[in-house]
Structure formats: structure tokens, C-alpha cells
Design a protein around this nucleic acid. Structure first.
Lengths: 124, 124
DNA sequence: GTAATGCTTAGAGTTTACTCTAAGTCAAGA
DNA sequence: TCTTGACTTAGAGTAAACTCTAAGCATTAC
């Protein structure tokens, strides 16, 4: 399957502006038809979804850019990419643990407030 | 125990600029001595730590401000505060789950690269 | 034949949360 | 007395990641 930028935008949940911006920044390579119109493929979709996972974990555009560049070069950059991912993973794991603790703190707070207000009615 | 802004800054890991900024924004109330110099207390410390947990979970300054305002008003705002925390919790749980999935995705990627490169040397 | 959708460049604007600067004052300690 | 650390207001600067605008041209579908 292939998609126009409008369709693709809806599918991946990024605005057309952002898709063009990402392309300009080198995060994606997109094919064009005879009229220079962008044709997004399922491969592009997988790639974007992968990028969005990296973004979700807090990777900066700068690092995603670097990762994409290496990806475009080819197999000889695998070690660099792996190193980047491993380094990033460390940060993510820390972040994850911090979030877990802060969530616990939040739950404690909520429990405290519920006790203070009396537990007759549980209004979720 | 009480602390000057300099000491407090080191203790809680926020710059003096940021501490004054938070105070101006209404996130903390700080006592002053006869010379108008800020005196931070252990109560301030607990409060800031609590705020930082909310910040960790991605709460905006705006919401933290609202929460602090209600806190300063007193017990009659407990329900509002509880509602805000519960609403926020929902977002945090979603975010947490998203992060968990993206972390899994990251791990899969790393495994993929390690297999591709051969698992003879594990360089962490 | 016109509306919808797409293309370009270049640059301006937005939001959040700080972060810093300037310019001046004040008070305690060695 | 002089350095250190504190205080004030007011506003400017920063960084990231978008987000949008303008102006003009091309193509496709009804």
C-alpha cells in the first residue's frame, strides 16, 4: 500500500507540516511520483512508528536524526546504532523507575486525600 | 532545621533562580526573617519534593500552580485537589503504559541489532 | 473549470519552563 | 572595610519541537 501525505498524516497521527519537517530534518526518506508528490509506503509507516517509539522514550530529535542518518547509510553503521540505542536505554530505564516512584507517590497522596475526606463515597 | 536559599538550592537540586521563580508563581510560600531574607523550612522541603514528584509525572506548571493555590487556601479545597490528582493519575497511568511498551520496543530493537552483529562479544 | 490536494522556499510565531542580566540595595562576618 | 550572599523589579534570552503563513505553481477529480 501507498499513501498520500494527507492519508499518511491521518494514519500515523502527525500533521502534514510535521511530516514535511521530519523529512527536511532527515528523519524519513520518502519516494515521489512523476509529479514530485510524496508517496508514503508501509515501510515508511513502520519506520515512523519506530521513530515514535524512540520519541516516546524521550529521545531528542537530534539523536533520532543521527540514528536515521546511520540507518540511511547502511549496515556498516550497525554498531554505532546499537551503541546509541544501548546508551539511550539506560536513560529510559532510569526515567521509567523515576516515573514508577512518582506514580506511587501520587497514589499515596490520593489515598491520603480519600481517607481525609472519608471513604463513604468512592468517586472515580 | 531552616535553610538559606543557597543551601536549599543545593538540597533540593533547583537553582536559586528557579526557587524564586516558583515562589513568584505561587508554587511555594516561604517565610522571611527581619531582613526580608528567605528562610526555608523542612516543611518547604517536603512540599517541594512533593511538587517535584508531580513534575516528574509530567504535570504542567499551570496545574501545579492550581494545586498549590488550593493547598494554600486550606481544607475546604480538598475535594478539588483530590479531583485534580485523580484526573492527573489517569494520564500518568497511560503515559506509564506507553513508556513500558516503547521500552519493550527498544529492547527488541537492541536484541535485533545484537543478533545481527553476532553475540560473541557482549559490549554493554 | 473550479475545488481539493499537493508542491516549494523562507522565515515568523508558539509554547513551556526555565535561566539569566542589569542595576541597585542591604546586612553579617573576618 | 570588603567580600559574600542575600534582596528587588523588569524584562530579555534560550532551547526544543513543532506549527503556521505567504505566495505562487501543478495536477487530479467531478
Amino acid at each position: 500500500m501507498t499513501y498520500s501525505i494527507g492519508e499518511f498524516s491521518r494514519i500515523v497521527g502527525l500533521s502534514e507540516h510535521t511530516l514535511r519537517f521530519y523529512e527536511k530534518e532527515g528523519l524519513i526518506k520518502v519516494n515521489r511520483d512523476d509529479n514530485n508528490v510524496r508517496i508514503y509506503s508501509d515501510e515508511n509507516k513502520l519506520w515512523i512508528e519506530s521513530l515514535l517509539h524512540l520519541k516516546n522514550t524521550g529521545m531528542s530529535l537530534k539523536d533520532m536524526k543521527q540514528f536515521a542518518m546511520w540507518g540511511h547509510i547502511g549496515d556498516e553503521t550497525m554498531e554505532e546504532r546499537l551503541a546509541l540505542l544501548k546508551k539511550h536505554r539506560k536513560k529510559v530505564v532510569e526515567e521509567f523507575e523515576k516515573l514508577r516512584q512518582s506514580l506511587m507517590h501520587l497514589d499515596n497522596k490520593i489515598n491520603f486525600y480519600e481517607n481525609e475526606l472519608g471513604e463513604c463515597f468512592s468517586t472515580n
